[in-house]
């Protein structure tokens, strides 16, 4: 758990980068810091492991004031991933991955075992890649190594500074999925900086939207899309925020709420889509297909029904937009 308590960052010359930000990252959650460039999101992230000093207020990690800890010890307890992966070219993949365990004085045997386990997690062969150097790996592989390096000493908290920002869209999406899968297993408390709205919606349990160092809204992605607190939030997510919110729902959700249409066997050449697909992709597919319907199938290939643009629209209206507002505490 990371708690920000009126956390403030002022640079010399009275430039305030972060203004009294208050929020809590719950244990095992991914919170994405989102906002336009210069909004203070990276500064805020770097204040957690004290790469930036805290001017005022405080940050507590699992109830412990971050300033009460030794700087180096604090950093070794926090996983850190940066955009350009920051792998050291003079070290092999194994050495790179095992830096923090090495600094912490783990035994050779423990390090070896841990390395194999981490490599398994990202589906790379430890034997094959361990002795290679970073430049011998592809960008996507390097970034995966960057991620497991941060996980190496099993820190409870991870900081990720636009970790997938430098990757091409196809690889990025794949690594995002992979990472979410890993997160299901490891359940780290993660603070994640992104400037990409789609990435934020996909990765976040909650989003912190910042502007000029001030917290605009702290909410789940769907709440933020459906009930933006102010004009800035509304504009930031854009006119297509309704469509964006569709990526938070799967066909399965739709099926459970309003059911699918009967499918028409007579129409030849109809595409099939898995029931676990999100609705945004489904909608794109419907639009690109120029067909009236797409057949929905489950994991075993059984046809469950058909989905049309009309049904998606109906779901959007009734299940997303018109969902009753949650009761506000203390009101």
């Amino acid at each position: 758990m990371i708690t920000f308590d009126k956390t403030t960052k002022t640079y010399e010359g009275n430039v305030t980068a972060v203004k009294g930000v208050d929020f809590t990252v719950e244990k095992g959650e991914i919170v994405v810091l989102l906002g336009p460039s210069g909004c203070g999101k990276t500064t805020l992230l770097r204040m957690v492991n004290r790469l930036e000093s805290i001017s005022d207020g405080k940050i507590t990690i699992d109830g412990q004031d971050s300033m009460s800890l030794n700087q180096t010890a604090l950093r070794r307890k926090i996983g850190y991933v940066i955009q350009s992966n920051g792998l050291f070219p003079n070290m092999t993949i194994e050495e790179n991955t095992m830096i923090v365990p090495d600094l912490l004085g783990w035994s050779k045997k423990d390090k070896k075992e841990r390395f194999q386990k981490l490599m398994e997690m990202i589906g790379l062969s430890g034997e094959k890649f361990g002795k290679r150097y970073p430049h011998e790996l592809s960008g996507g592989q390097q970034q995966r190594i960057g991620v497991i390096r941060a996980l190496a000493a099993d820190p409870p908290v991870m900081l990720m500074d636009e970790p997938f920002g430098a990757l091409d869209p196809i690889i990025r999406e794949k690594i995002q999925d992979e990472f979410l899968q890993i997160q299901k297993e490891v359940k780290k408390t993660i603070l994640f900086v992104s400037h990409d709205i789609d990435e934020a919606i996909k990765m976040a349990d909650k989003i912190v939207l910042l502007r000029g160092g001030e917290l605009m809204q702290y909410d789940t992605p769907s709440e933020m899309l459906v009930r933006p607190k102010n004009e800035f939030v509304r504009e930031f997510f854009g006119k297509d925020r309704a469509i964006k919110s569709l990526s938070l729902h799967t066909i399965q959700d739709l099926q459970e709420m309003i059911g699918l249409a009967e499918f028409d066997d007579a129409i030849a050449d109809t595409k099939t889509i898995n029931v676990n697909h999100d609705l945004r992709n489904t909608l794109s597919m419907l639009l690109n297909q120029e067909a009236d319907q797409v057949i929905v199938s489950d994991d075993d290939g059984n046809k469950l029904g058909a989905i049309t643009i009309d049904i998606v629209q109906k779901y959007l209206h009734y299940e997303i937009k018109a969902k009753p507002a949650p009761v506000l505490e203390g009101v």
């Binding site: 492991n49 790469l51 180096t72 010890a73 604090l74 950093r75 070794r76 850190y80 940066i82 955009q83 350009s84 920051g86 792998l87 050291f88 070219p89 003079n90 070290m91 830096i99 923090v100 600094l103 390096r149 900081l159």
Partner: peptide, 23 residues
């Protein structure tokens, strides 16, 4: 960025110098 990573991972200045910067 390499230096940043070294600091962020918790290397002391002298470790950073000998493990990352000098090599």
């Amino acid at each position: 960025q390499m230096r940043d990573a070294a600091i962020g991972l918790g290397m002391k200045p002298i470790q950073r110098l000998f493990r990352v910067e000098i090599p």
